[in-house]
Amino acid sequence: MHAIVTRTAAASEQTAANARQVIYRTQGRRQDWFTRLASPSGIGEKIKPFVFLDNFDVGSSGMPLSGMHPHSGIATVTVIISGNMNYRDTTGKSGTLSPGSVEWMNAGGGVWHGGGAAEGDRVRGFQLWIALPPEDENGPAHSQYLAPEQVQTHGPARVILGRYGNAASAVTTRASINYLHIRLKNGQRWRYQPPAGHTVGWVALYAGKLHTAGTVLQNELAVFEESTAALDFLAEGDTEFVLGSAIKHPHDLVLGYYSVHTDGYALERGEAEIERIRELVPRTA
């Protein structure tokens, strides 16, 4: 009996050793109502096209709308975990996102948007920035707001961007990107096989603990070594997290204050467009 246990333990250790390893992990930096997990000047350079990630937790400000700010050269993706969030953007759209809803804002050559918790509410979720390819970084801004029932699922995964199993996102992207929202029950195992060419991979936990590659993750961002190998997970407690995988963005990240472009000329064009549409921004900005 002892020999069987030893072989089993050795096999488990060997499996962990052969797994795709975690090469970076962080609990981020808490800043008022959000935790900054990734930024373009830091780990975002390593996991591009994913260049920025916040885990936010914000209460109502008592204002109908707050925080209007500009972007260019990127798309922002907001996933609402709990609470209700009001939004408005300078493409002319406004409304309220409920739990499970998704905001896709393709800033293109320039846009302003903002929002906040609905009156008397508290909203929690993730906001992600994705670097756009040269064909889109100075193109027209456009946005999509998906209700929970518009987000397709396969197994434990809600498909925010890309495709997984027989589920696909309603959002179309030129780049090959998967962004999934996962919920696992205590003790549940899940394997993610990235699509061909998706060498970038990471997870960010919202709740519970996640066992993978011989490590235990909790309330943190973890980046995996570049590979197309599968990722294996085991949930400890009811676990909720987001996962990103993609073909790596091959371009430089040229940074403005709220903008990310592939070169200085594209950044100049984006910042000029932001200034042009400033007059359209509501007075609450």
Rank of each mutant, 00 (worst) to 15 (best):
H2N: 13
A3F: 08
R7T: 09
A9L: 12
S12D: 13
E13H: 04
Q14L: 12
N18V: 07
A19P: 07
R20E: 07
R20F: 07
R25C: 01
F34Q: 06
T35D: 00
R36I: 06
S39H: 03
G42M: 02
I43N: 01
K46E: 15
F52R: 02
N55M: 00
F56L: 00
D57Y: 02
V58D: 05
V58Y: 05
G62L: 08
G67K: 02
H69C: 02
H69I: 01
H71V: 07
A75G: 10
I81T: 00
N84Y: 10
N84A: 10
N86I: 07
N86Y: 00
T90E: 11
G95V: 05
S98A: 03
M105C: 09
V111S: 11
W112H: 14
G116F: 02
A117N: 02
E119R: 13
D121N: 08
R122Y: 02
G125N: 05
W129M: 08
I130W: 11
L132M: 13
D136L: 14
N138I: 13
N138P: 06
P140L: 11
P140G: 12
A141K: 07
A141R: 04
H142G: 13
Q144A: 12
Y145D: 11
Y145C: 14
L146D: 13
L146V: 11
A147V: 10
P148G: 07
E149A: 12
H154Q: 14
H154V: 08
A157E: 11
R158F: 12
R158E: 06
Y164S: 10
A167K: 09
S169F: 10
V171R: 13
V171H: 04
T172E: 15
T172Q: 15
R174N: 10
A175M: 15
S176H: 15
S176V: 15
S176I: 12
N178E: 12
H181C: 08
R183I: 06
N186R: 09
Q188I: 07
R191A: 09
Q193C: 06
P194Y: 03
G197W: 11
V200Y: 06
V200P: 09
V200E: 10
W202V: 04
W202I: 07
W202L: 13
K209I: 02
L210M: 12
T212V: 11
A213F: 06
G214A: 10
T215D: 11
Q218S: 07
L221W: 04
F224G: 08
E225A: 14
E226S: 15
S227L: 08
A230W: 01
L234N: 01
G237H: 03
E240Y: 01
L243D: 03
A246W: 03
V254Y: 06
Y257F: 05
S259V: 00
H261Y: 11
A266H: 13
A266E: 10
E268I: 00
E268V: 01
G270R: 07
E273V: 01
I274V: 12
E275P: 02
I277A: 06
I277P: 06
L280T: 10
V281A: 04
